[in-house]
Design a protein around this nucleic acid. Structure first.
Lengths: 256, 256
DNA sequence: CAGTGGTCTAGACCACGCT
DNA sequence: GCGTGGTCTAGACCACTGT
């Protein structure tokens, strides 16, 4: 199936050589299958040998493609068992996207966050929301406002905007009651897997309303975290604006 | 040279199998050469073929070791030229550790930062400084305070602590005058290459002195960024506490 | 035991950068 | 043209997981 990486057949010399290694083509094919839901989060994909046969390629080439996808956390290899589609529904990668940790470092000190849904309603995208979600102004979105508390202490105030199409039918109950990460619920209920995110972080002062919801004094410095999360194809599927109390917690980042 | 990955010779059954793949052993040997300065930042290391001969191993095994070191940004591969020791003295990786970017996104909008050194002196490690740098209380450190400005606007106020041994002789002039990243100067002048860093981020309010140095009103929310940077062997070689103005800039982070 | 991913090798050929 | 890293293959064997 994958064309061997020969120079183009047509006589016209291409401005871009458009050379793409075989393993890259295989990677794209696997990515396509993930995108189309041929293999769902948590499921095993076919063995390397099967994939090699399917794509008429050596096992080594498939291996290199899978290696890269595993490095990007789209797949997870498990020796002796197989290769699996990564999912947010795993104890072990639970907090891949939440960087706020207790100063003690012990993340599980006070268990999972309690969620309080303040609001969950359909609305229409304003200019900047639309821009962030690659929609047009006025297109339907789902808007959620919630507070996350740890050990009873309100710590994060978040607003979420989700594109109305893929998230049609999302309810406050779903947001509140699902046992596990919100992104795991998105996978299960809406078939949307968040794969990558970009965050912009600032320091801001709490206004009256924010202060009340987070039980701090107005003017308290808070971390403002704006996140755009995207799926396999790179299309943005969530805009999130959070305010983090950083009294006894901090945003942890590793530069490598 | 590298012992084949056979089970231990001794009869005692090991609690840890202590199995280490060949490429991992090669990786460690290369790392050791980097640590000992056999190849310096910016220089080329021997070709894969040479290394394969040196370690009595196939080229593929060396390749896998180098692949991982390149993924960790310790080495840089350049097709047709060779493999080089990574360095901070490169236009292209200039800002690998500075995550504060203009809201416009264009990092080079107002060129490199201007550095104002407020202080540069030898002192002795207090408890928490010592802990961060893996020293004992009272051991000598070099302490630097500086302001970074962009287009004339003071934006970052930083305190640096460096272990006194490796950084013996560091002067304010060196900190101020070196044309290029500070970490490049550390490589060149002190043979210390920063390889990894961990940051803890909080929101704080500017006090009187900080406000004056950053030309903002007291109480302005600022990003507090505490960084511990380490060398090849993982030993911490710098503690840095910065305060960032985030009026028209933000700390950018990618979650992948 | 069979099946999976993980390691190691050897060899052929390709793409790139330099001289 | 030569030397570098980059791709691709084929085959052997190891380590881990389940039956």
């Amino acid at each position: 199936m994958p064309t061997p990486p020969f120079p183009d057949d047509a006589g016209a010399l291409p401005a871009t050589p458009a050379f793409s290694p075989l393993y890259q083509q295989i990677k794209d094919l696997i990515l396509q299958s993930l995108q189309q839901g041929e293999w769902k989060p948590g499921e095993a994909i076919p063995s390397e040998i099967d994939l090699a046969a399917r794509y008429r390629v050596s096992q080594g080439t498939v291996r290199k493609a899978i290696d890269e996808l595993a490095a990007e956390h789209l797949l997870v290899r498990r020796q002796g068992k197989g290769t699996f589609v990564a999912t947010h529904a795993e104890q072990h990668v639970q907090y891949r996207f939440l960087r706020l940790v207790p100063d003690s470092g012990d993340r599980d000190a006070n268990g999972p966050a309690q969620r309080t849904i303040l609001e969950c309603r359909r609305s229409r995208a304003t200019g900047d929301i639309a821009r962030a979600l690659a929609l047009r102004s006025g297109e339907p979105v789902v808007q959620v406002r919630r507070v996350l508390s740890f050990a009873g202490v309100p710590t994060i105030l978040e607003d979420l905007w989700l594109p109305g199409g893929p998230f049609k039918g999302l309810t406050a109950e779903q947001m509140a009651d699902y046992p596990g990460p919100t992104y795991a619920m998105f996978e299960l209920e809406f078939g949307v897997r968040m794969v990558r995110a970009e965050e912009k972080i600032r320091a801001v002062a709490a206004d009256e309303q924010q202060a009340a919801l987070l039980a701090v004094s107005p003017g308290t410095p808070l971390l403002s975290v704006e996140r755009i999360a995207s799926t396999y194809n790179g299309l943005p599927m969530e805009l999130r604006r959070g305010l983090y109390r950083t009294g006894d917690r901090h945003y942890r980042n590793v530069l490598a």
